[in-house]
């Protein structure tokens, strides 16, 4: 339905797009670490999305489309600031992702101990993950996107998405266990 009297974006499209703003902002915060930069990133995402609204295919996942724009924008910004940032070496990341996970038996008491982990501790542990693993775990376990959608957002193969999720979850397991052990 065309918006009456205002922009070229339909009301339904606008409402559905803006419903994802909070989750886009949280993801932008995970990407930038700075609230002002996260706001800037989300604004640019919506600016691009509304400009390109006519290229969105109705019936596909609008939320995933917005997240793809967000990640592409973040990547472009990182590229522009390449002098200031430590670039993620995708080969190194993928090699790390291929490394074996914990081989020792996960003790049941450890697993039970993790049940006591509070959200702020979990958030802090997620934030300390290397960016590539943090993105993959966050998009899968918090935002609940499919492997294919995450692959599209991050411009990596679906197999790499799965290995990054796997490695990221194992890193979190080790960090949280360490934290619990130290606290205990």
């Amino acid at each position: 339905m065309a918006r009456q009297g205002l922009g070229s974006v339909s009301q339904a499209f606008e409402a559905e797009a803006l419903a994802s703003l909070d989750s886009l902002y949280r993801t932008a915060l995970r990407l930038t670490g700075v609230p002002a930069d996260a706001e800037d990133l989300v604004q640019e995402t919506y600016l691009k999305a509304f400009r390109a609204a006519d290229t969105f295919k109705p019936g596909t996942n609008l939320r995933a489309w917005l997240f793809t724009i967000l990640h592409n924008t973040a990547r472009n910004r990182a590229r522009d600031r390449a002098r200031d940032t430590v670039a993620v070496d995708s080969e190194v990341v993928d090699r790390a992702a291929e490394a074996p996970g914990p081989r020792g038996r996960a003790e049941t008491p450890e697993t039970l101990l993790l049940n006591d982990v509070l959200a702020p501790e979990l958030q802090a542990a997620i934030d300390t993950l290397p960016e590539a693993f943090r993105q993959a775990v966050w998009l899968r376990d918090v935002e609940e996107f499919s492997y294919a959608e995450i692959a599209e957002m991050l411009s990596i193969p679906a197999g790499t998405v799965m290995s990054r999720i796997s490695r990221g979850r194992h890193m979190l397991f080790e960090r949280l266990n360490h934290l619990r052990t130290v606290n205990a």
Binding site: R103, V137, D141, V142
Partner: peptide, 17 residues
């Protein structure tokens, strides 16, 4: 063990979502 660890973290994130 790998599966156990991965599932524990996944479930933890889901419960704290």
């Amino acid at each position: 063990s790998r599966v156990h660890a991965e599932r524990t973290v996944r479930d933890l994130i889901h419960t704290r979502k």
